[in-house]
Design a protein around this nucleic acid. Structure first.
Lengths: 189, 189
DNA sequence: AATTCTAACTAACAACTGTTAGTTTTGTTC
DNA sequence: GAACAAAACTAACAGTTGTTAGTTAGAATT
């Protein structure tokens, strides 16, 4: 358990506040109050509100990008890669549960390079995901549905995993992974 | 094609603006500019910003509630009911694509009775959805997975259908419904 | 003991927020 | 054309926003 720098503390607290009401609904004074300081003091540690948002979102986006690369280079079937992606999402969600609300709902409030960097990573991630599905269909591992329907259905479930806070505690991580893979890939009937 | 009242116009335009950046990021002046008027003039038609948000969200919530009741009273198998719910979501999404962003992302900015009315409808809806799944498991129509996993997986896909704007145009509604039912219930393998 | 650094503070800024009051324009009805 | 209601307007309000400037207290380094 490493000790957080003051800057990291601010970013972490900000993520938990953003989670509940979103980036725009939280003021620097709200954040400062939660940190037991005055708003102006925050600027000894960060350059502005935008830097906080970028730090929260881009760190997670980078982890997804790296995780995807790792899955892509693994020499295995499309289904195994899909399984890997499901596990990737679950792992990241467990490690960054607060940040994921911002990644999903506040990314559009990123500005300039922060925004374009995020969109680029996100688009690239989706492309890779789609290609894995397409390949699975070509090799007859996956039923010949429209790839967009499959992509959308799996990805939207994985992206909203962070909302599943309370129930998660009751389920073991590995059980959750197994169930998730089974439901998303094998269906429910 | 009925002609909209000025109030309905305002609410509709507000929904499209809220969709892109969220409730808090859109000011009454932004909304007025999009309507080609001054912010103060909006108040000739609506009581305040909160009324707009409530109108957008509660109308859709009510449609979901009524749709659920209609499905619940239909005398059929659990799987058929699930199919009905999938179709319900697709129909509502097509008819209220702008409003659904607010329903998903801005409901927490509702206040007072608006908020409690929404939360009540939403919780009730989820309970009914869960019960249909549970019943399907009892009757062996559905694999004995943890009901929460199934509920979460299907519901999060349906709830984010509104994000699927561009691709949707290419697919016929009935094809989409069939594919969605097939993927969500039958899986992809 | 003197100096530098860190991290807090107070005070203030210009811009923006939702909203109200009062007024003027517009189009319809007698 | 007078009277009326609907719907726009201008001007202003009190509060909030992110941020900057300058200051100060305590700790670390010289």
């Amino acid at each position: 358990m490493k000790t957080l720098s003051r800057k990291e503390e601010i970013i972490k607290v900000a993520a938990t506040l953003f989670r509940k009401k979103g980036y725009n609904a939280i003021s620097m004074r709200d954040l400062a109050a939660e940190m037991d300081m005055k708003a102006a003091s925050l600027y000894n540690h960060i350059s502005g509100k935008q830097e906080i948002l970028a730090a929260i979102i881009l760190e997670v986006a980078l982890e997804f990008t790296e995780g995807m690369e790792s899955v892509m280079t693994q020499n295995s079937s499309s289904l195994k890669k899909l399984e890997g992606l499901i596990e990737l999402h679950i792992d990241i969600t467990l490690n960054h549960s607060e940040a994921l609300a911002a990644v999903n709902n506040d990314w559009m409030h990123l500005e300039g390079e922060n925004l374009s960097a995020f969109v680029k990573m996100r688009d690239g991630y989706e492309d890779n995901f789609r290609n894995i599905i397409k390949q699975g269909i070509e090799t007859n591992e996956i039923k010949p549905h429209h790839p967009e329907v499959i992509l959308f259905s799996i990805l939207s479930t994985l992206r909203t995993l962070y909302l599943w806070q309370e129930k998660r505690g009751k389920l073991d991580v590995n059980v959750l992974k197994k169930d998730m893979v089974s439901v998303l890939i094998g269906g429910i009937v």
